[in-house]
């Protein structure tokens, strides 16, 4: 069915079984990092080798795959990974969030609420939320075993003392199902609330660090905070310049060297969908309906 010299979705079947076993354990123990025998992939570590292995292990011929990086389908690494699967697995690929059954992502969660027929696969650089406090795996593993997360709370509280805020704007740690503190991968904290009670399965793959973890659907995911300093989602002062959305995560685009800026949706499919529905930001003029009336 495909002429590729490699197996369907590149990985050999024994490797897929090994990854599938890790995925099942990860689902049964939400937020716990399952060690797995990550393979050396034909793309560099740090480029999504963990996400690619997870996707390859679950992907079937019926799936429709979407790949995003920074929320966009057209960033070079997203293009490259999508091309890899189009070539090795011959699956349907799409940029439409609604149409996709498997979405591999780096650094964003799509704006559109995900559904129960979808799986979101995150690419993870450093899966250990405690790593920046304690570099040793031997130590952090014990902390997770004992659910001893005091060090994390001390760090967050020191932030408040120094900056008046928890000084983390992305890669913001969460507690999953009341047990494990988990690294959500470097998504902006704007996206954290989308992980909570999500309809879709969320899988996380860290290839270089050889870990897989998961959040099943309808699982409680809480961003760490304090009663007197509750978690706050970051807000933007402007709507999207292209589609006028005011509730989406925006990229800041520098337009000249005199302080010119414009803000546009980071989720390109979301933005295009809104424009197709007729929404217009200030850069594209008024709503088409209004323009027609004026003519």
């Amino acid at each position: 069915m495909n002429a590729s010299p490699y197996n369907f979705a590149y990985l050999d079947e024994q490797t897929k079984r090994m990854i599938r076993r890790a995925i099942l354990k990860a689902i049964a123990i939400p937020g716990y990092q399952v060690p797995f025998a990550s393979r050396e992939m034909p793309m560099p570590y740090g480029w999504g080798t963990g996400g690619v292995q997870v996707t390859a292990a679950i992907l079937g011929p019926e799936d429709v795959l979407k790949v995003i990086d920074q929320g966009a389908d057209d960033t070079t690494n997203a293009v490259s990974i999508r091309a890899f699967f189009a070539k090795t697995a011959n699956v349907r690929v799409t940029t439409s969030t609604a149409e996709a059954t498997v979405i591999q992502t780096r650094h964003r969660i799509p704006e559109m609420a995900l559904t129960s027929r979808q799986v979101l696969v995150y690419q993870v650089p450093i899966p250990e939320p405690l790593r920046f406090l304690e570099p040793r795996e031997t130590e952090t593993r014990t902390m997770h075993a004992l659910a001893e997360y005091g060090l994390m709370h001390v760090k967050l509280y020191e932030d408040i003392a120094r900056y008046g805020h928890i000084a983390t704007s992305y890669d913001y740690p969460v507690e999953v199902a009341g047990r494990y503190v988990m690294d959500p991968s470097p998504i902006p904290k704007f996206d954290n609330p989308k992980m909570d009670n999500c309809d879709a399965l969320q899988l996380f793959g860290a290839g270089r660090e050889k870990r897989i973890y998961a959040i099943p659907p309808h699982t409680r995911v809480v961003s760490l905070d304090f009663d007197d300093h509750p978690f706050e989602r970051n807000k933007f002062d402007h709507p999207c310049a292209l589609c006028g959305a005011s509730e989406s995560y925006l990229d800041e685009v520098v337009t000249d060297d005199k302080g010119g800026r414009m803000f546009v949706c980071s989720d390109t499919d979301f933005c295009e969908g809104r424009r197709a529905e007729g929404h217009r930001g200030h850069l594209l003029g008024d709503e088409p309906a209004a323009r027609e009336a004026a003519e």
Partner: peptide, 28 residues
Amino acid sequence: VQATGFVEHLKLPHYVDFQAELAFIRQM
């Protein structure tokens, strides 16, 4: 191979995270 991958991955786009930091530092 691991080291070069992770060091060099910093050249991949990180503008979403950087935007989060930008907005936060401006707010502070």
